[in-house]
Each structure stands twice: as structure tokens, then as C-alpha cells.
Nucleic acid binder design. Structure first.
Lengths: 206, 206, 206, 206
DNA sequence: GATGAATGAGCGTTCATTCAT
DNA sequence: TATGAATGAACGCTCATTCAT
């Protein structure tokens, strides 16, 4: 993540970076609490205790702010989870570690996960199309597919359709968080482990 | 479905019922084509070839219209799929028949399925909360859970957590349709069969 | 002018046409009085005694409203002036009739002329470019040039550069109205006749 | 030009004067390139490579900055052109020299001329009125009128209305530059000579 | 029953100006 | 002197809803 630099590569000052971080946090908190459709810039600014124009000053627009939220949270998740997954020795353990890892991240960063999901669902481009969903999810699917293929080639996984599996796994993980958001007392880690078991059984070789 | 009656039980006239059906169809077509955020009442009215105000006349507001779309499509799916599922003799076959059945319905009613998914994701209550997601999905989950428990009691299914399974299955099916909406050339039936296989392996007894 | 029809050719109702005319008149009055930069939609609406949204309802946006003002006034001028010009028997008389005709129109429709000038100067496209000035004035120049060439071919006009003449004549006429707007007691018709004399002397054959 | 002094007569330091000149140059370059409406202070500051606030520090506001641009360019033009005009021996030659002289200045200082025109058209007072047009142009007209009257008294010019002539000549010159700004490949000097010919014929005694 | 004109709150964005450092 | 962060009003526009006809 190089969000500390301007698009042209110039560095941002420490203070500006702090303000941006503060605004991003306010956006996360507001969206997580109220949902994306109830998080206009005015409300995010109020959460941050600043004027509405400040956001436009530090970000190119709402779109860039959302991009930064997504990039930040996403990078954080990837870093957290990747380390755990790589520490495993076989594909099955990696699968379990992936689901579990994301869940553990979410437990510690509940708002970020909730905001991420909201933004994915609701943020749209100027032309009305989804900003992050749809075809934009392709890299995500391809990453999962590469993992599956590796397991298939090593003989640990059976010969399932990797795209169907990727779509199903990703949606099941997303649904886990959404369920948890609606039912805050839900045991997220138990859910994650159970989902890991489902995925392992769905994928492993006979 | 008792949408032929007013909330107070009084019956609607045949003509009024036809108008409501026409508007519902227009809503389905518009949302399926353009997505919920790009389907204001004005556009739905234009699709129906009627005035904008007539929607407000026949429905209590956009919310009630969306309710009716959801109820109608949902009932139709349930009726179609239930018959196919009940015709099966064992739990595994029922599972496959369920996924396959929904997919076949979707193939024949693509717009309705797409509209349903869009409304589920985007429709919100006046307070900003999701109108159909969250706790509103409880009956759906309970239906799936009853089925799982039956299979577990008969020894066909292993002893998994039924709530996690219900959430995962439902989200995987929803994701299948969303993927198909974005990639219209995707082979939906093949996806459904593959997903059925995943679910069977995830649930069956050792 | 076919502003009574929608772009797709469908006819507007009488009432809608009346409302559009009312809004156009309010725009003309507001812009003429306060200048384009001081004529936001809210103020135009206030002048018309209506809500701000009404304008967006009847026009596609401020741009279309300005287009309609320009088209309407422009057409009106052209019709008025063309008749007078065509009634002349020689090029010199046509030149005088043109300037005089525009001035007489302006005397009877002061606000429209003022609004037209303001819109020409200030209205811009989404990309920031002038909406009516610049290269958009080409048809205007070409019309004048055709007239000059005709006079040159008939031997009434000398062999001047038609483009320079067109630009100079048009700007002199515009400046006449601007001067009159700033000095309301200025004798517009005398100015027009004097300008006609200038143009005749500048163009006529030796 | 006495811009080296504060309004209260106190002198500016050399450094401050240099800063003001730098900002004025940046304003000229920005307005010439992008047009007045696309030249907010932030962009002018960026062009100058300085902070936005420094403009407000050195100038009382955007209005004063624009005043200084106009005054500076205007003075420069007057000095350049006056010398050439005065070198002529008769009124007709002076007329030609005036138009030609302004054009030659513009050729060498394209940006300044373009910025001047843009500011004249777009700059407004706090009350919305034009800042330089209208009655502010009076000294300009009076200068031209004095020249015309001199020619009339000497018998070189016919007995035209000097105010109409002044307005027409000035607008024709302005339009020449605006046309040249929009069509950069336009032959400005040829246009100037042609316009000089028009003016001579329009003014000379029979 | 049906119309479509009208409303008004809310949206993201721009920008000259202010001011603490 | 200089900075750049912050402000806040104003803008054009969207849209669910209301209501007189």
C-alpha cells in the first residue's frame, strides 16, 4: 500500500496523512454503524468532528475516500491472513487457516469488516455500475483458483470446478460476516471453523 | 400469498389486481436490467408505460412495491422448487434437486431472479436498515435447518452446525445468480450441479 | 423552432409547454436583471414563483434551459430581421436593415437581448468550454459571409476579407447592445443607424 | 501604474513586489490557458508553485489580483501602442498603426492579451456586476473619441458619431483577439491590417 | 382511477476566504 | 512571510412523495 503518496508519487506530509487516516476511520465507523446509504459525506464529517469540505480537501471525492477505505482494510486483511496461510504445510490446513484468519481479523476489526462489506455492495461508479463488485472481483477469484489448482495438482483436492468453488467460498465467508453483523452475539470463530470443515469436505480428494 | 387483499382484508378488484401485476412486472424488468440503484419510480413507470403517480396510487410507496416483488417471486420459486425436492427419495437427492431446481427456475425467469437479488441487497427501511436481509431471512434459514436435521436424524447427513450450513448454502446460491447476472454466458446449470456436489460432500455422513 | 416537441418527436402537452415558457421567461428576466453568474436555478425558480425542482422537472438541466432561451430568442430575432432584410433591393440597404432590425427587436425585447448576451458569454459546457461562443459561432459567421460574397459578386461590395468583416460586424452589434444595457438611456436606434453607416462605408466598392 | 505602493501610499518592499509579479504572471498564464472560469486561486497558486494562501496574503482577494493583471497588461499595451501611433503623421495612418500595434503586442504577449480579454468578460464585483466592462470602459472610449475628434477637426475624418465609432472599434479589436484565441492558427496581423482598412474606410472624409 | 406537475430535502462538489502555526 | 488546513455557503441535480384536477 502506497497511499502515503500522491498519485504522482509526491509524498504527503505527516499531518495530512494523519488527517486522511482520521477521515478514513470516521468513514469506517459511520458506514459500519449506519450502512453505506446512510453515510453521506456530511455525516462522515460530523463523525470526524470536522466540516464537510475538509473531506473534499483531502480526498479527490467520495469515490477516492471509499477506494482508500477498501484498499486499506483489504491490504490489512491480506497481510494478516497471508502469513497464517503460508505457515501451514498442506492445502487442507491452508483452507482452514484462511477462513479462520479472516474471522480473527474481523473479530479485532469489526467496523472495518462491516464497512468493507457495505462499500462492496453499495458503492457505484458515475455510470451507476458497481464500483467493486461484479467483474472487479476477478482478481480475488483468480487468487483462490490458483490455490485450488495447486491442491488439485498435489492430489490433495479432488477435481472440482475452481470457479464455482471460488464463488461459493467467497460468498460463504461474506455471508458469515453479514450474519455476524446482524447477530452480534453469534460465535464468529465457531462459525469460521465450521465453515472451514465444510470447505475441506467439499474439496478434498476421495 | 394474499396480495389480492388489502391489509384490512378487503378484496381488490380484478382491474386493480391487474394494474398491480403490471407494475410489479415493470419493476422486475427495470431492476433486472439496470440494477436497483438505477431504478427510480420514474423509470419503472416509464417501463410500464404509465404515469409515475399511479405507482404511488396502487402501492403504499416504493417499499410496498418491493415487498410485493419479493413476495411474488419468492412464492413462485418456493412452489416450483418444493415440488421437485419432495419428489426425491433421499436427502442427498433433495439437496441436489433444490439447487438445480432454483437454477432451472432462474433460467426461465432470469429477470425475476436478478430483481430479487438486487432488492435483497439494496432495499432499505426508512431507518436505513436492510429490508430483507438480516433477521428477515430467519424463516428461510429455519426451513433449511429443518431439512438438514431430518437428514441428520436419518443418518444421511453428518453432525454439522445447521445454521452455518444454512447461511453458507443460501449465500452460495445467491452468489451463483449474481455471478450469472454479471456473466450472462456463464453455464448456470453446470454451476448448480457443481454446487450441489459441493453441498453433498460437505454434508454427508462419513 | 420545434421546441414544442420532445427530442424523440413526441408532443408536449399545452400545459407543459406553458410551464416551460413561464420558466424560460423567468430565466430571461433573472439573467437580464442580475447577470448569468447571479442567476442560479434557485433564483430563477423564485422569480417564477415556483420550487427549484420544477425546473429540473421540465428541463433536462440548466444547460437545456439555457439552450431553449438561446434558441427561442435567436429564432425570434432571425425571423424578425430576415423579413426586413429580404425586403431590401440592394446589398447596402440589406446591411443597414440588418443592424437596424436587430436593434428594433432589442428595443421591444430588451430583457431577451440582454439574457442572450449573458448566456453567450458565460454559459459553459461540463468540460469548462464555452457553450455558445468560440467555434459554435461558426454558422453565424458563415451566414454573414455568404451575404458578403453575394454583394461582392454583384459588384456592390469591394473585395474585403469576409471573415474579418463578419467577426467585426457581429462584435460591433453585440457591443452596441452591451453599451445600451449599461447605459439604458443611450439612443439605440441612432446607434444602429450610425453603425449601419460605418458598415456600409467599410464594405462598399470604390 | 503605482502598484508598487500600498493603497495608503506606503511603499512595498522589493521582495514583496517580486512576489506580486510572480503571482500576476501565474494568473496570466493560468487564465490564458484555461479561461477565467477554470482558473480558481488554487490553480493559479499551483501554476506559481506556491501555496494558495500566499495569494490572499499579497493581494486583498481575487478581485485585487485581477485588477493588477488588468492594470499591468493595460499599461504595457498603452505604452507600446502609443509610441507607434504618435510616430505617424496623419490620422489614417494612426488608425492603422493603432490596430496593427495592438496586434503586434498580442503576438509577442499572447497570454497577457488572452488573460486580459477573459478577465474583462468574466470578472465581477461582489454585487455581481461586471468589474471592468460597462462604465469602467469610459476612459478608453474617451481616449479614442479625442483622437477621432482631432481627425474630424483636421478634415481627415468625416463627421461620424464618435461614441459609436469608439465602441465599434474597441469591440472589433477585442473580437479579433478572441477569435485568435479560439483559432490559434488565424493570421492575426493580416486580420489587423484588414480591420485597419475597414476602420479607415468607415471614418475617412468623402 | 389515473395523471403528471410540483415539492423539498438531501446529495456530492467547488471555491474564495480565513487563520493558527 | 509563508503555509496549507479548514471553513461554509452556494451550486446543479436526484427522487420518493404529495395532491389538485
Amino acid at each position: 500500500m502506497q497511499s502515503e503518496n500522491y498519485p504522482d508519487g509526491q509524498k504527503r506530509s505527516f499531518i495530512e496523512e494523519a488527517r486522511r487516516a482520521q477521515i478514513i476511520e470516521a468513514a469506517v465507523a459511520t458506514i459500519a454503524e449506519a450502512g453505506y446509504p446512510n453515510a453521506p459525506l456530511a455525516r462522515i464529517a460530523r463523525t470526524a468532528g470536522i466540516s464537510k469540505g475538509v473531506i473534499s480537501y483531502h480526498f479527490d471525492g467520495k469515490d477516492e475516500l471509499m477506494d482508500q477505505v477498501v484498499t486499506g482494510v483489504y491490504t490489512e486483511i491480506a497481510e494478516t491472513v497471508a502469513a497464517r496461510v503460508m505457515a501451514q504445510s498442506d492445502a487442507e490446513a491452508m483452507l482452514r487457516a484462511h477462513v479462520r484468519g479472516v474471522a480473527e481479523y474481523a473479530l479485532e476489526h469489526r467496523d472495518r469488516m462491516a464497512a468493507l462489506a457495505q462499500i462492496f455492495i453499495h458503492a457505484r461508479d458515475a455510470d451507476g455500475g458497481s464500483r467493486f463488485g461484479g467483474r472487479k472481483a476477478e482478481p480475488l477469484y483468480q487468487g483462490l483458483e490458483a490455490f485450488y489448482r495447486h491442491g488439485q495438482e498435489s492430489g490433495e483436492f479432488r477435481d472440482f470446478d475452481v470457479r464455482v468453488m471460488a464463488v461459493s467460498q467467497q460468498s460463504s465467508i461474506d455471508a458469515m460476516f453479514e450474519y455476524w453483523r446482524v447477530h452480534p452475539d453469534h460465535d464468529l470463530l465457531a462459525h469460521a471453523d465450521e465453515l472451514g470443515e465444510l470447505l475441506v469436505r467439499a474439496t478434498r480428494a476421495d
